[in-house]
Design a protein around this nucleic acid. Structure first.
Ligand SMILES: [Mn+2]
Ligand SMILES: [Mn+2]
Ligand SMILES: [Mn+2]
Ligand SMILES: [Mn+2]
Lengths: 218, 218
DNA sequence: AATAAATATTAGTAGTATCTAAAATAATGT
DNA sequence: ACATTATTTTAGATACTACTAATATTTATT
């Protein structure tokens, strides 16, 4: 059984592996977890002994198959609980992450299995992130960043990249939600800002915003 | 904010205070928490400094008003989650306690408030125990032990005293549940064993069983 | 009241998870 | 190539929780 701290490290490394190729750095983990590099070294060495990750001094770490499975399971629990909080308890989507951070560490396979069934086996969490299956497998989904679309292209919002509260409330205010139809009306060359149409409304967004919205195009 | 360990101590002492009058002994806490008396002394001294309980060396402890409130809130969360697990996720009543032991420590008032509402503000958990309100107040309920009834008295099962899995499964097998109508057909003088009627069935139970079933009589 | 037994506390140790400060290694710029 | 900077690791300290063994206190027994 893995401790809360161990689970959080595995989860963080799992997420970082998708961005950095070939070994996650100590610093990257420290930044993401808001802790000190020395603490990361300690934990990473402990986890290496438990064989959930590979570690070579000064060279960064990679999860083993076991490590990935444990991490994916924590993420599965996190996202299922988020669905529960939004769909069943009617939380706004910007308030659920913190609570799911706690719920994801509750240990009971039976609980997650029943929760999954009760929620009717959802494939995505409220922010559009895929929910791993019980074996840790994640469906690959072809989604594009809004910032990569060109003028006159259109798509449906399927997720967000960052999901901090301020950003999600920004989207709420502008009626951008999962499922919204978005069309690029114009795109500035030099700063990547855009004029877009969301439903009937037209609005202007910066590249930073466009970099954090995922669309499915057809 | 109180740690998981602290919350468990407060909860345990809260429960023990109802039985032992005038100070809960270190040993009693140790037995109930399956730990060593020396560990209890350590923790109790720490909690005394935080002023959630009163402690005099060799004299046992008593919760302060603050301590009682914290404990009651943990119990409130525990029991609400048990209702959720049984009523919503259809867990059998003998499997929910362990999971609720973990869920009770999730910190979010908003979560509990919404869960309470979603469950339609239940007054009792699946074992018949009262759910404290958000101020920590518990409705006093007049319930009697089955073992205190005499021949020909009758009542409705409203709860159980012990709720370990074996006992609850024993009750399941004999179709004794919350809401069951029970009548005492006969009672042995020397060992307190009874012949009872549950619905249409007659069955024989030992005093130990009768000591753990609560009835409401009218 | 003296002795024995039960109960409770203290002292010292250990495991977990963090931190700061110092030292080691790697990467970068001239 | 060498100096500077950034990154990473180690050493040593702290907080938390629980343990064992030794000591102190209370309670029960004769
Ligand atoms: Mn989240
Ligand atoms: Mn977490
Ligand atoms: Mn319970
Ligand atoms: Mn607990």
């Amino acid at each position: 059984m893995y401790s809360l701290a161990e689970e959080n490290y595995l989860k963080t490394i799992f997420h970082l592996e998708k961005e950095c190729e070939g070994g996650v750095s100590t610093n990257a983990i420290a930044v993401k977890m808001d802790t000190k590099p020395s603490s990361v070294t300690d934990m990473v060495q402990k986890l290496a002994e438990k064989e959930v990750l590979l570690y070579k001094k000064y060279k960064g770490t990679q999860l083993t198959k076991t490590g990935k499975k444990i991490a994916a399971n924590v993420i599965r629990k996190h996202r299922l609980w988020e669905v529960f909080l939004v769909e069943i308890l009617n939380f706004p989507w910007d308030e659920v992450h913190e609570i799911a951070e706690q719920l994801e560490h509750v240990k009971s396979d039976e609980l997650i299995s029943r929760l999954d069934k009760y929620l009717d086996f959802p494939d995505f969490d409220p922010h559009g992130d895929p929910i791993p299956d019980k074996h840790g497998k994640i469906k690959p989904s072809e989604k594009k960043l809004l910032s990569d679309l060109e003028k006159n292209q259109r798509g449906i919002c399927v997720g967000v990249k960052e999901s901090n509260s301020e950003f999600l409330q920004y989207l709420d205010k502008r009626k951008i939600a999962i499922g919204s139809k978005i069309k690029v009306l114009g795109k500035e060359f030099f700063d990547g800002s855009m004029m877009i149409q969301v439903g009937r409304n037209q609005l202007f967004i910066s590249k930073i915003i466009a970099d954090n919205i995922y669309l499915k195009t057809n």
